[in-house]
């Protein structure tokens, strides 16, 4: 089960060049995401001409949306990275372990019965993500100290399917309610405004800090539970940190954009291909790569079939699935 990428000794780009390319990708993605939109006549140039409408569109509609896309990319990428590290399973990601769907279920609950649940939308999404993650890890045997790779994936698929079935059940409820559940869970960031984006930015920044602090623990975990323990890092603590991190980041992303699949799976793999296996480097680079991917996807979602927008989650899957397949086929030792 090892999707071997970034082998030591294999030809890899120098670190400086890779980082430079990454920054260019982010800048390009941000620009792409900002200049595209429903009104094709509005570009960045319009701002400098002092056109008030254009400036308002960019400031109030496009900028929060672009930032939201970038933050979602960071969250999902880091969540996937953390899950892959603590489970030592290359297939681990928020959607495959059911965490994405658990978050959507928590969100749906908050929408259906806002007075019966203890937390606001993003809190409920995180709670749902956490519950799904705990369930999947318990099925895989993680809390007894040994994660079974097959049971992890099977458990995740089952938990995910069950949670999402409950979300879809909400679609059959009264029309008004069903519409809001659909709108929140389909993976769409078209009409997002500043307040939720800023709230999400808080979670993203917190998550990046925690991930940086845990990066070396993640490295030790790659040595296996036994060696990690001998080296003084209790694997159960690492597992707990990874799961809380993944649940928090995924919940925050899902509460803004619904469950977007694939980003959490492929972004860490892309980062490992470019930057190797050291999590102290992978945490920041995965975050940047996730942001770049989502910005490009957001831009593309607006230009693929104008004037209709394709939900950004669909674009991510359209980019991600072929890429993942390619990497799988090219991996030297897929066992």
């Amino acid at each position: 089960m090892s999707l071997a990428v970034g082998r030591a000794g294999a030809a890899r780009l120098p670190l400086g060049l890779s980082v430079a390319l990454l920054l260019i990708a982010i800048a390009g993605g941000a620009l792409f995401s900002l200049v595209t939109g429903g009104r094709s006549d509005i570009g960045l140039a319009a701002i400098f001409k002092g056109d008030a409408t254009s400036a308002a569109v960019i400031r109030d509609i496009r900028a929060p949306r672009s930032l939201a896309a970038a933050l979602i990319g960071i969250n999902l990428g880091l969540a996937g990275l953390a899950l892959q590290a603590v489970t030592r399973n290359p297939l681990a990601s928020p959607s495959i372990l059911g965490i994405n769907q658990g978050a959507a279920f928590g969100l749906a609950l908050a929408l259906i019965a806002p007075h019966a649940v203890p937390l606001p939308l993003d809190g409920m999404a995180m709670l749902g993500a956490l519950a799904a993650g705990i369930l999947t890890f318990a099925i895989a045997g993680g809390f007894a100290g040994r994660i079974d790779a097959m049971r992890l994936i099977l458990g995740g698929v089952a938990v995910g399917a069950f949670s999402y079935a409950l979300v879809r059940f909400a679609y059959t409820l009264e029309d008004e309610l069903a519409r809001s559940v659909v709108r929140w869970t389909v993976g769409d960031i078209t009409d997002i405004r500043w307040p939720p984006v800023l709230r999400m930015a808080f979670w993203t920044v917190s998550g990046v800090i925690v991930a940086m602090l845990a990066a070396h623990r993640f490295n030790l975990m790659a040595m296996g539970q036994d060696v990690a323990k001998s080296l003084g890092a209790d694997p159960r603590v690492t597992l707990l940190i990874g799961m809380l991190l993944a649940a928090g980041l995924t919940g925050a992303a899902v509460s803004v954009a619904g469950p977007i699949a694939f980003a959490g799976l492929i972004v860490p793999h892309m980062a490992k291909l470019l930057f190797g296996q050291d999590h102290r480097i992978l945490v920041p680079t995965t975050a940047l790569l996730g942001a770049a991917l989502m910005l490009v996807a957001d831009g593309m979602s607006k230009v693929v079939s104008p004037p209709v927008e394709v939900p950004v989650g669909v674009v991510v899957a359209l980019i991600g699935a072929p890429w993942f397949l390619l990497q799988t086929l090219l991996a030297e030792d897929l066992e």
Binding site: S2, A4, V5, G6, R7, A8, A10, R88, A222, M223, G224, D226, V227, S230, G276, Q277
Partner: peptide, 10 residues
Amino acid sequence: PQHPVVPPAI
């Protein structure tokens, strides 16, 4: 331990 894991690409 008896069969230590070799992490990828180290």
